[in-house]
């Protein structure tokens, strides 16, 4: 498989707004967006009963803003429910990418340095990357009926319900395969002589990989993670098809009720864009922070 086969193009969002005015607008937008999301989540799950507004209800009265603009009133009315649902989208994304990483490192190391395990790892990644994510979710949910495993767990909207665990398993498995590809090509881009030098001062193969190759490779893999994070944010919407009440699913049921497809899905698109752009900016920031002079200069551009 060619190396480029592993990459999904980044949602390149950095250059749209340029100049320092653009920069301040982006920061202001980000603060507003996340401030509001966090306020919603705090309000729903962390305030004692009686303080704040009931979940799903807006801070402002839609009727009060109606004279300013009908669209605004519409947004004020429905955004709270969508924000609550975005919590699950964020949970699905973050948990899956973290768990995915934990398994992807050994899978990719096996792929590059293993012999027998290399074949197993190759088969796994090809199989997962060669089939639709939706099919993988269906296998877990319908064929294996995994959600019965998680019955009886609390479901208060903050802690996820049974199907959410199934979705997390599905996204994690999927993410392991993609992250393993990113890390694999990053491992291959580390100069082979680095491991030789490590062996020459007496480090074992394992120590050399752990202390010399991986720290460099993981930096090379950051653009890959940026892609993966964006991918997971967007494709977590497919959890709707196994009944997870994440952002897209909630939007779909609201729209099925009020037939305001245009308005609801415009709001949903804006929320996803906000999450995706935040993720890209975050990863660009991480990449800058861990950058090392002279190491993979081109990878950070």
């Amino acid at each position: 498989m060619s190396e480029t086969g592993a990459t999904r193009t980044t949602a390149d969002t950095g250059r749209v707004v340029s100049g320092s005015l653009g920069r301040w607008l982006t920061i202001a937008g980000g603060v507003l967006f996340w401030g509001w999301l966090l306020a919603r989540w705090l309000n729903n799950w962390f305030l004692p009963a009686g303080v704040g507004v009931p979940p799903g209800e807006s801070f402002l009265d839609p009727a009060a803003v109606a004279p300013i603009s009908d669209s605004l009133a519409f947004a004020v009315e429905y955004l709270p429910q969508l924000a609550d649902a975005a919590w699950l989208t964020v949970v699905l994304t973050v948990v899956s990418i973290v768990l995915g990483f934990v398994f992807a490192v050994p899978v990719s190391v096996a792929r590059v340095y293993g012999t027998y395990s290399s074949t197993v790892s190759l088969a796994f990644t090809e199989l997962i990357r060669g089939t639709p994510l939706l099919a993988q979710l269906f296998v877990l949910y319908y064929a294996l009926n995994l959600s019965t495993l998680f019955r009886g767990l609390p479901d208060d909207g903050f802690l996820p319900s049974a199907v959410v665990y199934v979705a997390i398993i599905g996204f994690t498995i999927n993410s392991v395969a993609y992250q393993a590809e990113y890390i694999r090509s990053a491992l291959l881009s580390v100069d082979r002589e680095q491991l030789t030098a490590a062996r020459a001062i007496g480090l074992s193969q394992r120590q050399g990989i752990r202390h010399v190759v991986l720290p460099q490779a993981l930096r090379f893999a950051i653009p890959g993670w940026s892609n993966e994070l964006v991918y997971l944010i967007k494709y977590s919407s497919l959890a709707a098809f196994i009944t997870v009440p994440e952002l897209f699913n909630v939007a779909r049921s609201i729209a099925a009720d009020n037939f305001a497809y245009t308005g609801i899905f415009a709001l949903v698109a804006v929320l996803y864009l906000g999450l995706v752009i935040s993720a890209s900016k975050l990863m660009a920031g991480v990449e800058r922070r861990v950058a090392i002079p002279g190491l993979g200069g081109t990878a950070s551009q």
């Binding site: 193009t9 949602a11 390149d12 964006v230 967007k234 919407s237 897209f248 698109a269 996803y272 864009l273």
Partner: peptide
């Protein structure tokens, strides 16, 4: 950016 940042569904 809009097309790349929005889920296909």
């Amino acid at each position: 950016t809009v097309f790349r940042g929005t889920p296909i569904v």
